[in-house]
């Protein structure tokens, strides 16, 4: 598969689209740069997002702010323990006048699906959503129906210690590209929030700043970002380190490596750069990796979270240097030729 590197104008377009979305979300939620970066990277990398935090900090608001910033269809599912899979995917009902079944699409048939409090639903219903996330299609009554493109699931969940929750199994957490936390706002931002929410819902004022076509184009550009061998090595080093880390019972999967790379490419595209830097990888490592890792019992008892362990790993893993001039001459010459071929490689 040959891909050309994105041009300057394409990259500028991506940067423009994403910065507009960013600005739009910021009118509702201030001080959330990292969470917004994680969200946008996930969108451009065609992943799905998990927002985990305590109730009331704006998880759903973040999801809705993004959805409203893009001119697209939005589905919203409030997960409850009695929700059925058909409530998510849709159901065929019998039309007595026509003597036939008619499919009523569920809320999952939308560009952006906000799955609120996903861990309050029963595992069976969770699976229905997670399957459609993976397949980007829904099969009901033996008929497979494609989901719209772009398709993004933003699931929110409460921390698993909360009552009435069914924690997502590791295998299903692994399907989410990134998990971001909203966190408590800075006092300054909280005051601003009290002002802006005084009597009005700021979400009501959010207008679409872009459309699905622009988003799809940005996604296509992000896929063509150049990745140097050193970056791939760096990602493999990081992922490998989570597997060797004594404080972790489960390390990151190969899927995690793939998704970290995709998200890093998206972040590079948002910055208007045609290649990935280790800075991109570092910025997203916690968001992409931490929710897939299971700390060992010792780590949990000593209060070390997967996020902290991931940060430790990132801070001690060497950034790989280029192989270009660390090699003897002959190899360097070969490398140089690859170099020039790289734009079309």
């Amino acid at each position: 598969m040959t891909q050309t590197l994105p041009t300057e104008s394409e990259l500028a377009e991506v940067a423009d689209v994403t910065s507009r979305i960013r600005a739009s979300i910021s009118t509702v939620l201030s001080g959330l740069d990292q969470a917004i970066t994680g969200t946008l990277s996930t969108v451009l990398a065609q992943g799905h997002l998990l927002i985990e935090d305590v109730p009331g900090v704006g998880k759903t608001t973040l999801a809705r702010a993004f959805a409203k910033s893009v001119d697209c269809s939005v589905g919203r599912i409030q997960f409850t323990p009695d929700l059925l899979p058909s409530d998510v995917t849709g159901v065929s009902i019998y039309r007595a006048d026509d003597h036939r079944f008619e499919f009523r699409p569920g809320p999952v048939f939308a560009n952006v699906v906000i799955a609120d409090e996903i861990n309050r639903a029963s595992p069976k219903t969770q699976s229905a959503l997670l399957e459609s996330m993976q397949e980007r299609a829904v099969t009901v009554d033996g008929l497979t129906r494609e989901l719209p493109n772009p398709f993004l699931v933003v699931a929110t969940q409460n921390p698993i210690e909360m009552e009435g929750t069914y924690p997502l199994p590791e295998a299903q957490r692994d399907r989410f590209m990134a998990q971001v936390s909203v966190g408590y706002p800075h006092p300054r931002d909280e005051i601003a929030m009290l002002d802006s929410h005084d009597g009005v819902d700021p979400l009501a004022f959010v207008e679409p700043v872009t459309n699905t076509a622009a988003l799809a184009a940005a996604i296509a550009v992000a896929r063509r970002i150049y990745v140097a061998p050193a970056i791939k090595q760096y990602i493999v080093d990081l992922v490998g380190a989570t597997r060797d880390e004594a404080g972790l019972r489960l390390g990151a999967s190969p899927r995690a490596a793939l998704q970290l790379l995709a998200a890093s490419k998206a972040r590079a595209a948002m910055a208007g750069r045609n290649h990935v830097l280790p800075d991109d990888v570092k910025a997203l490592a916690v968001a992409v990796l931490a929710h897939r890792l299971i700390p060992s019992t010792e780590s949990r008892l000593s209060g070390r979270t997967a996020q902290q362990l991931t940060r430790d790993i990132v801070s001690r893993t060497d950034v790989p240097i280029s192989a270009r001039d660390a090699m003897p001459r002959r190899e360097a010459a070969v490398d140089h030729s690859q170099h020039q071929a790289a734009p079309t490689a």
Binding site: L5, Y226, A228, A230, I231, N274, H275, V276, L277, P278, P320, I321, S322, R324, H339, Q340, A342, P343
Partner: peptide
Amino acid sequence: ADHRYAPAG
């Protein structure tokens, strides 16, 4: 950074 990671060095 360009030298290490950019496609054209």
